[in-house]
């Protein structure tokens, strides 16, 4: 059999294209929602980790370490298949978003922390000496400087979140990968899977290149 006919069957690809597009749309929604929620959660966790009362700091640290250690697939399956036993039944989308957000938030918190801790002490002291409160010091002095530094690692984390959305197909969410596997079954031909892979690449490869460029630019700024 012709290899090209098998993996790049244009007719099959054309027929499954609408399904792939529908899947892609859901993948992007899930990715974007999880990234945004993860950013908010991560900033909150970071502030608690650095500035809350001691016991809260410790709890936050435990959360961050646990959710950076647990395999995302395990977490997702617990959320979707185990929680119903205690009466909490979440839709595939919400389950996937919850799992992705919880993990992304843990990573994001550590990224923000490294960005804040990289700011020299003198910046905090100058702000304090001027009479700025903690919140104003953060929003007007520290975070604007940290953001620049954390954009590359945050983009990296976002790429990981989008990649990990593919795990949602395990809980029967019709994302890009799920649509592709279904299209493959229907057509008895793997071309839709290849199509899906190409679509993932088309979105993520430019982001990967962008991160490299940002990192190079930041490093140049340092020298």
């Amino acid at each position: 059999m012709d290899l090209f006919e098998t993996f790049f069957n244009l007719e099959v690809l054309a027929r499954s294209f609408p399904m792939l597009l529908k899947g892609l749309w859901l993948t992007l929604q899930l990715g974007a929602a999880s990234i945004l929620a993860g950013l908010v959660l991560g900033l909150g966790l970071c502030m608690m980790r650095l500035y809350a009362a001691r016991p809260v700091q410790i709890l936050t640290r435990v959360y961050i370490d646990v959710f950076r250690s647990i395999p995302l697939l395990v977490l997702l399956i617990i959320v979707y298949y185990a929680l119903p036993f205690v009466g909490l039944r979440l839709s595939p989308f919400v389950s996937a978003m919850a799992a992705l957000t919880m993990v992304s938030g843990a990573y994001t918190a550590e990224i923000f922390r490294s960005g804040i801790e990289a700011i020299p002490r003198g910046q905090f002291e100058a702000a304090a000496a001027l009479g700025l409160g903690h919140r104003q010091t953060m929003t007007d002095v520290i975070l604007p400087q940290s953001i620049r530094m954390v954009i590359p690692p945050l983009t990296n984390n976002s790429i990981n979140v989008v990649k990990d959305t593919a795990l949602a197909s395990v809980v029967a969410m019709p994302d890009l990968l799920k649509q592709a596997t279904q299209a493959q079954a229907l057509a008895a031909n793997p071309s839709p899977l290849i199509g899906a892979a190409v679509i993932y690449l088309a979105f993520l490869l430019p982001l990967v290149l962008l991160v490299s460029r940002l990192e190079r630019r930041l490093n140049r700024g340092k020298a």
Partner: peptide, 12 residues
Amino acid sequence: GMVFQSFNLFPH
């Protein structure tokens, strides 16, 4: 008011 040895201006 305080003035520091290393200035500590806000670079951004």
